[in-house]
Design a protein around this nucleic acid. Structure first.
Length: 274
DNA sequence: CGTTAGCCCTGCTGGC
DNA sequence: TGCCAGCAGGGCTAAC
């Protein structure tokens, strides 16, 4: 499932190829992907526009269209974006949801088996309110231990739930929450407000380190994730606890456990995480 | 306001 | 081997 590292990988892969492209055609194959009522508006608003830059906010991929308008894509669970050079096809026709054609004959395809992924046109005037729903970017320099500690301090929810709450911190999902909490030695079910200042410092450092390494490894391909040109990521080979139930903890050897927190499968080492 | 449950979806897994 | 119930889960909305 695409989280911050996967979306950032796709952004970096697409940036050189799509910057400067002009949108010459929009084929909304499955209208649920753009919200049925907005399909016609979506087509007319992005048609003919020029892509000036590619950005990312949390797990959202942004194709800037000038004047601060943007085409926004969220892949949710099983969404995939592919840049298809002239005359090539995407990974499978069956799950094709959206095709955006460019003046150079290439196209951007959105595939999604589960139909959770979304695309939308975001007017510059609405952008402020739209992004205000999201918490800070964890890889920004301004995301400090003190900032994280302040976020954790006023909630009695499990610390893992806070990390995954996009209004608190943007971009962390189930994989990277599990891995960062293991690296920081913190049990995921702990009340957020009970995490100490020094633990918050460790957690802040490990969140950044985990996300940075995952970006370097081009994300995690455990289910359907692939890059924009079909290449899998390799961070799954670096998982210490996620999806490793029953396997020995790489640090102490005790079997990795699986529990549920906030309705999400959660993996941890009960010996290493306090 | 803070928090949680339910919903959307469909491929895959596991049990028989 | 084949079948099928149930799981998986990001983000939104409703409800507590």
């Amino acid at each position: 499932m695409p989280e911050l590292p996967e979306v950032e990988t796709i952004r970096r892969q697409l940036e050189p190829a799509l910057t400067g492209r002009t949108i010459t055609g929009v084929d909304v194959v499955d209208e649920t992907v753009v919200d049925k009522k907005k399909a016609a508006d979506f087509r007319s608003r992005i048609g003919g526009r020029n892509i000036t830059a590619l950005e990312r906010r949390g797990k959202y991929l942004l194709f800037m269209l000038g004047s601060d308008d943007a085409l926004v894509i969220h892949l949710r669970m099983t969404g995939r974006v592919s840049h298809l050079p002239r005359g090539t096809n995407g990974p499978d026709r069956k799950h094709l949801r959206l095709v955006i054609n460019f003046e150079d004959g290439s196209a951007l395809a959105l595939h999604d088996s589960r139909r959770f992924g979304r695309a939308l046109f975001l007017n510059a005037a609405d952008a402020g309110a739209y992004w205000e729903r999201l918490g800070p970017e964890p890889l920004e320099r301004s995301f400090t231990a003190a900032k994280l500690a302040a976020i954790l301090a006023n909630s009695r929810r499990p610390v893992k739930s806070l990390l995954m709450d996009q209004s608190k911190v943007a971009g962390i999902g189930n994989i990277y929450a599990d891995e960062a909490l293991f690296a920081a030695g913190i049990r995921p079910e702990r009340r957020a407000c009970d995490v100490s200042a020094s633990e918050a410092q460790s957690l802040c450092r490990e969140i950044k380190a985990t996300l940075r390494l995952a970006i370097r490894k081009e994300g995690s391909s455990i289910d359907t994730y692939r890059g924009a040109y079909g290449a899998p990521g390799s961070f799954q080979d670096s998982f210490k606890v996620h999806r490793r139930q029953g396997e020995p903890c790489p640090r102490c050897g005790q079997a990795i456990e699986k529990t549920r927190i906030g309705g999400r499968g959660t993996y941890l080492c009960s010996a290493c995480q306090k």
